[in-house]
Amino acid sequence: MTQSSGLPLWEIFVRSRRGMSHIHVGSLHAADWEMAVQNARDLYTRRGEGVSIWAVAATEIHASDPDDKGPLFDPPADKVYRHPTFYEVPEDLKL
């Protein structure tokens, strides 16, 4: 990976409406978190898309290994009851 001579990278999360979760929208560069939030407001909420912004230093994000798919992501086969299709309901009923 290239060593950056630019400003640090920040991952930006925006909550677009009350009642929703923050969603990752992209990243930007800024020297500190205050500038990152300020820039994020201009960049990712220009059309009034956001009511709340998180800026997270990209170096602070720790990810799972995508190839390590076993325990983390495979829906445990023994817990099929978590899925709505597990349940039989009368066909003419909207549920």
Partner: peptide, 11 residues
Amino acid sequence: PDFEEDVALSN
């Protein structure tokens, strides 16, 4: 001075 600032100053 930076693309982020292009956006900010235009705002």
